[in-house]
Design a binder for these strands. Structure first.
Lengths: 203, 203
DNA sequence: ATGACCATGTAATCCGTTACATGATTCG
DNA sequence: CGAATCATGTAACGGATTACATGGTCAT
């Protein structure tokens, strides 16, 4: 809901808009993202409000960089936001809606294909997150114990993405199983004699 | 990210804007939501585009209702959207960002409190979803097998919310454990004497 | 009569995406 | 010489929230 506070938080170290965009494309993209065209004006707004200071620095490659630094007022605002308790916004999952409405097709094979494709995407995302985690904590439990306070919190946050993606992949598997069951109900419902000729046993 | 297609899907049976808002406040709120002030103009737009037809109906309580009905063109558009494969938008989780930035407080007790509060909210949400599920499938596996095609798909969708919320609650528990471990590292790290309990790092 | 619920809408504002516009450096 | 990367921005549009405005019915 508010990019402003996200930017304040990401400006722990002085950075340019471009730097922040890069961070969104990498580790931070499991919980937030924004385009440069939104980042630049927002940084300006924060500076006008007195929470940031900027200065231009020459760059070795390309044009000069405008580097923003958070000041005491900006830090106060950030802490205030964090202190207000966990902010849960509305989650919107278009693909869940699509699944809901797929009964209109009345074709369980289409639903299967949909779930398979979704599973692929979710599991790619999970793989990416696991990669980020192993960069952070590579050498097992010992390395986790010796993380800096910052990396410790970043790791906790990353774990949310991992738990959540794993759960969604498992949800896809469960759904695929349920669909199969519904397609061949005889094979799994052992209640009463079933005289149907398509019997699977002793085959 | 389009409410338009969500509305087309929800108009399986003719409904008023008010009805749709009610649905968002109940079962559908784990995957989408919208305000009346957004629903009403969007329904009008869809009618102008030829995907819906409306007529007013007297209401027993309150003013007359404008009831929308999806036509063949609307149905075609819906199927087209569903057929385009699973749409994964950007997910934004403010509370994960807050957690990331909490290292600035440098106070693990604050982090603990944050995670406890978050756990409470997530687990309330899970409870609500389980309630919706038991309304849908109350009498166990037999009832699941005999769901209509519509309810079968709605149930699959609902399972996503349940899997995902359960995973997030477990993530909170894991995080709380990790925080405790970090606060009392002697209890879990059996490597050499540690004579300075309150100091986790030394420079 | 007061408040909850039914029922519709508009206007202002804010948040976010896509498209447009510019230009330097570096590597192949 | 062309493509990728570095680096900054504006403009137009679309999607979503908050605030405003109206008025009827029903139960306490």
């Amino acid at each position: 809901m508010s990019l402003e506070h996200i930017l304040l938080g990401m400006l722990h170290d002085p950075s340019s808009g471009y730097d922040i965009k890069t961070a969104f494309s990498e580790g931070a993209r499991h919980f937030w993202s924004a385009e440069l065209s939104q980042i630049y004006p927002t940084l300006k707004k924060l500076e006008k409000r007195g929470w940031l200071k900027s200065r231009t620095e020459p760059s070795s490659k390309g044009p000069p960089r405008r580097v923003y630094r958070r000041n005491a007022a900006g830090r106060r605002e950030l802490l205030h936001w964090i202190g207000a308790g966990p902010q849960m916004g509305t989650e919107r999952f278009a693909y869940v809606a699509q699944l809901c409405f797929m009964h209109e097709l009345d074709n369980l094979e289409a639903t299967t294909e949909f779930m398979l494709e979704l599973r692929g995407k979710l599991s790619d995302f999970l793989t990416m997150l696991l990669g980020v985690e192993s960069e952070l904590t590579g050498r097992g439990q010992a390395a986790i114990d010796s993380l800096s306070a910052e990396d410790f919190h970043v790791h906790l946050a990353l774990r949310m993405g991992i738990h959540s993606m794993r759960a969604k992949v498992r949800w896809c598997d469960e759904a695929l199983t349920r669909i199969k069951q519904r397609q061949q109900p005889r094979a799994v419902r052992p209640r009463g004699p079933d005289k149907n000729p398509k019997e699977v046993r002793h085959g």
